[in-house]
Design a protein around this nucleic acid. Structure first.
Lengths: 263, 263
DNA sequence: AAGTGGTCTAGACCACGGG
DNA sequence: CCGTGGTCTAGACCACTTC
């Protein structure tokens, strides 16, 4: 048997988008129109549209229509400095992203107490159920939701410090830890990829079919784990990078030259 | 309005799985049975089942039934040695995974010439359309498909070397490069996350809703980029890790103690 | 032969968004 | 108000797997 109708339709739509016939931000024909144009039922059209939405290629907005998604990829180059202290006066988030030429902002700071889940406890070297301090915030680039971060601290480390204030700490939390006798000497990153929860999908503004990149970073002092940071990024607009050793042969920055055409 | 029916159904099914009522490998009730049990049409059941399949929680096999997926996560700890030469006599893939306690195998080795795409050319510092040598293979852990790798070499580097042979090179390709005067002194990793193509989804044996983790690694000698390796991993059974600086406070290996219960 | 999921139709009603 | 996508029904035929 040949390809099913809904996949043929999906491929035709994909071709129109790839060819630039439909451009990012454009509205695609309504489901009724597509059904008529291809001589299939609306349900079949929906199978095709859903498939493309699940790849993050298009996005439906109830009551309005279906549009070609525009995605810009931001590369996060994770510096390999074991101390984690950023070079300038700003925190790592701002210094990393400003180098990428985008405008980073943070909002919705919150600080709360929680019980450590097994996942958190294992990484912080504490017992499941122990109390932990959680700092969380949302991060935007150029005004659009981009990632959501939660940092877990053992109570003894965070209590009584600036870390308890539900506000931005412009110089960065790593400096605060250091000032309080918990200098970071190393860290371990774990990177996962999964489908978003409904919460995440809502916040990130990505259609439910777009995966998320999840970064677990455990920071260590010489004595103990001092922090676990879990950050969830929109998968289709984020890329991580690590540079090891001598990469001077890489030449120009490269990645920045994607399609900046402004002045 | 309350939650739509298909989402209620999806949540009930998810609850059964989370509770251990339905265990990995188990077959879930057929679509007809679920429709009768919940008093909804088969199409509505399919919406629920599709949603869970898109999260990688269950998997449908035509003609047979729908089953709870079993997933095991393999952690790839990327060593930060700039030379890339693995410690033992084996290549990096085998030495990394054997440390994880699983059995790595490789198959379907192929070597071919191709024209560099823009993506490849930019990373190798060559011109789009230049000829490149591509070595590719499939990788399995414990006999199950796990990742597919393609390595791109500028022709001048690969031609006339052992790299042209479509076979495993047990001591690792990095050693071969070094023997031919292209010692690696650094590398850059770029990590993406996206939905699989149909090919990939087929090979990896993951339902089409499970994302893939994609690793671009560019290796550099002192003079130039010598290789680009693109590896695509099943997203729901792979995790990357990087350890920087002193992480001795991490204590025991941790990650290995998941649920090994053999003796 | 019987049961499964895969595909497809032709309807229906709804909430939402914009003129 | 009307067009949009979101949800839902009640059928149908098919290919494939298992017995």
């Amino acid at each position: 048997m040949p390809e099913p109708l809904y996949r043929q339709l999906a491929e035709r739509l994909r071709a129109r988008i790839d060819a630039g016939d439909l451009r990012p931000g454009d509205q695609i024909p309504s489901e009724a129109e597509l059904g008529e144009e291809f001589g299939v039922s609306r349900n079949t059209v929906r199978l095709a549209v859903t498939a493309l939405a699940n790849e993050g290629l298009i996005e439906s907005r109830a009551g309005r229509g279906t549009f070609v998604r525009q995605r810009r990829t931001v590369t996060v180059l994770h510096p390999l400095d074991p101390s984690g202290v950023p070079p300038g006066p700003k925190d790592a988030f701002k210094s990393t992203l400003e180098r990428e030429g985008v405008k980073p902002t943070q909002e919705n700071f919150r600080v709360e107490f929680r019980r450590a889940t097994a996942e958190v406890a294992a990484r912080l070297g504490i017992e499941e159920g122990d109390r932990v301090v959680v700092r969380r915030m949302d991060r935007l680039v150029d005004g659009e939701p981009w990632s959501r971060q939660e940092s877990f601290y053992p109570v003894e480390i965070a209590e009584g410090t600036e870390l308890m204030s539900p506000d931005d700490i412009p110089r960065g939390t790593i400096r605060v830890l250091k000032e309080n006798g918990h200098a970071q000497v190393g860290f371990r990153d774990e990177i996962n990829c999964r489908m978003p929860t409904r919460d995440e999908s809502g916040f990130l503004g990505s259609p439910p079919g777009v995966p998320v990149l999840e970064l677990f970073r455990v920071a260590y002092s010489e004595e103990r784990p001092i922090r676990l940071t879990i950050t969830v990024y929109a998968g289709d607009s984020t890329q991580f990078a690590y540079e090891v050793g001598d990469v001077s042969a890489r030449g120009e920055t490269g990645r920045g030259s994607r399609d900046r055409e402004d002045g």
